[in-house]
């Protein structure tokens, strides 16, 4: 029995190691290429021939017309912070109303939300673009923030699932003590909801870092300092730029990827709780 166990353990570990290698190959390629001494893509070797930090130094310290990484990072960061504040507020507000309150039309609104999410989102982007243009908000941070956070309320389901698990008795006790609904929301429910608040904050923070569809159409001035990280990096891989910027693209990918990975690892627990409807403990 003992021997069989050892064999099994080794077998499982080996399988896992092989899978892990498969999953990590692209990431490793990203990282090693970012330290390459050349500019273009090396198609004959996995590891670069010469190692250098110059992709990072050029990306961070020597912006040119194509690569404005520090600027992009700032733009994206500003948009992300504001998006995160507004989106989180919207999501929590909608979730509380849908989960903890009972009013006429609640079910109807929830059904509406489900239906709305079935439409392909970027279908409407051209209309959104012209709406923003009508109020002069294209090519601006405010416009981008509005686009990302405007409809955030639709993504209330995960947070609602969490609020559903907060015992009703807690709120009822508060009402009996004469607390208003608003007071209950702020002093009873919110303090109990840290995990879901963290989850909402992180996931809304990540949106501007990964979207290139909306950003590309709304930030259309052609001036590269206006861009976000996602369009900037996407642009670097245009065929005529790729030979000169591929390794810098990788460096940019690493620089964006690291903080996001960290946030993501923090978030994974809440992600699971959200999807499984809060029915999972730990």
């Amino acid at each position: 029995m003992g021997k069989k166990r050892v064999i099994n353990t080794i077998l499982v570990q080996v399988i896992l190691a092989v899978l892990a290698v498969i999953w990590l190959i692209p990431i490793v390629w990203l990282v090693v290429t970012s330290f390459s001494g050349t500019d273009g893509m090396n198609t004959s070797r996995f590891f670069p021939e010469t190692w250098s930090l110059r992709n990072y130094t050029r990306l961070l310290a020597e912006p040119d017309t194509v690569a404005q990484f520090p600027k992009w990072f700032m733009n994206t960061f500003i948009i992300a912070v504001f998006n995160c504040i507004i989106s989180t507020a919207f999501v929590l507000m909608v979730s509380y109303a849908m989960s903890c309150m009972r009013f006429k039309g609640r079910k109807a609104l929830m059904n509406m939300a489900v239906i709305l999410q079935l439409f392909p989102a970027f279908l409407s982007m051209i209309v959104i673009y012209f709406i923003l243009k009508a109020v002069n908000l294209t090519n601006s941070h405010i416009g981008m923030i509005l686009v990302y956070s405007g409809s955030a309320g639709l993504g209330y389901l995960v947070a609602k699932g969490f609020f559903d698990t907060i015992p009703k008795s807690l709120r009822e006790a508060a009402y009996i003590e004469g607390a208003s609904e608003a007071r209950t929301f702020f002093t009873i429910v919110l303090p109990l909801s840290k995990p879901i608040i963290v989850y909402t904050i992180i996931s809304s923070f990540l949106v501007p870092w990964t979207d290139f569809v909306f950003a590309k159409i709304i930030l259309n001035s052609g001036v590269s300092t206006d861009w976000t990280v996602a369009i900037g990096l996407y642009n670097m891989l245009q065929k005529n730029l790729l030979p000169h910027y591929f390794t810098r693209f990788c460096a940019g990918g690493v620089l964006v990827g690291i903080p996001i990975s960290i946030l993501f690892v923090i978030m994974q627990k809440f992600y699971v709780e959200g999807i499984t409807g809060g029915s999972v403990k730990g």
Partner: peptide, 16 residues
């Protein structure tokens, strides 16, 4: 601009 919500109002000043 005047008719839009307060949050949008803030952005009207930005020039294009």
């Amino acid at each position: 601009c005047a008719a839009m919500t307060a949050s949008m109002l803030a952005g009207c000043g930005s020039t294009s």
